[in-house]
Simulated assay, not measured.
Amino acid sequence: MSVLASLALRTGEAIRGIWREVTKFGIVGALAFVVDNGGYNLLVFGLPGAGGGPMRSAPVRASVAAAAAAMIFSWAGNRYWTYRHQHREKLTQELALFTFVNVVGLVITAGTVYVSRHAAGLDSVLSDNVARIFGWGVATLFRFFAYRRYVFVAP
């Protein structure tokens, strides 16, 4: 096989591998999003017709609880599925790094809302949601590359 053909074959395999990883990462992230938002709505609003959830008077605590559940789900999904062949031996070190990366992601998302509100002077529902979606996108890219490089590394 020629060098050029070999290089083309390896490049194709690398691209397929990264797309598999991106797809798995995206599926885990989408499910974690459902856990977060679904959990929050169940905790605050309850099931339809139930008259409210168990944390209806504590929406901030409900948001923290739902986000924590989603983060744990995301860690497990990424560790045991997306990056199952490349996770750390020391579980506590991996979980600490994962938590740190997610806190940075949270700051990125909150930061875009802060900039929208305080630097740009925008305060509509639309501007908040655009800022959050933009921040979520940037934070997702940050998480993907940080997970690959720092959190889930091959032994």
Rank of each mutant, 00 (worst) to 15 (best):
T112W: 13
A120G: 05
F33G: 14
D128T: 13
A68C: 03
A110E: 08
D36W: 05
D36M: 04
A65Y: 03
R132H: 14
L9P: 00
V60R: 11
A70F: 01
T82E: 02
A50T: 14
E21M: 09
P59M: 03
V103Q: 00
V34F: 15
I108A: 09
H87P: 00
E13L: 14
G29L: 03
G51K: 09
A131P: 09
A70Y: 00
F100D: 06
I108R: 06
W75R: 06
R10A: 11
R10H: 14
T99Y: 00
T82L: 02
E89R: 15
A8V: 12
A139Y: 04
V34H: 10
T92P: 02
I27S: 12
W136M: 12
Y150Q: 14
T23C: 11
A139Q: 06
G17D: 11
S116D: 10
F73N: 08
S57F: 00
R56C: 03
F73Q: 05
T23Y: 08
V44K: 08
G39T: 12
G29T: 08
I133P: 00
Q93I: 05
G121Y: 11
N37P: 01
V107N: 04
N37C: 06
I15H: 13
A76G: 03
R61M: 15
D36K: 10
V151I: 09
T82M: 02
T92A: 15
V153S: 13
W75Q: 03
H85V: 02
L91C: 03
P59Y: 01
A30R: 08
V125Q: 08
S116M: 10
V60P: 02
H118V: 08
D36F: 06
A120H: 10
V103D: 00
G111A: 07
G39S: 10
A110P: 00
G137T: 15
E89K: 13
V113I: 09
P54M: 00
F25N: 08
G135L: 08
N102C: 09
D36L: 02
N102W: 01
M55A: 14
L91V: 07
P54T: 00
A96N: 01
P54N: 05
V44L: 03
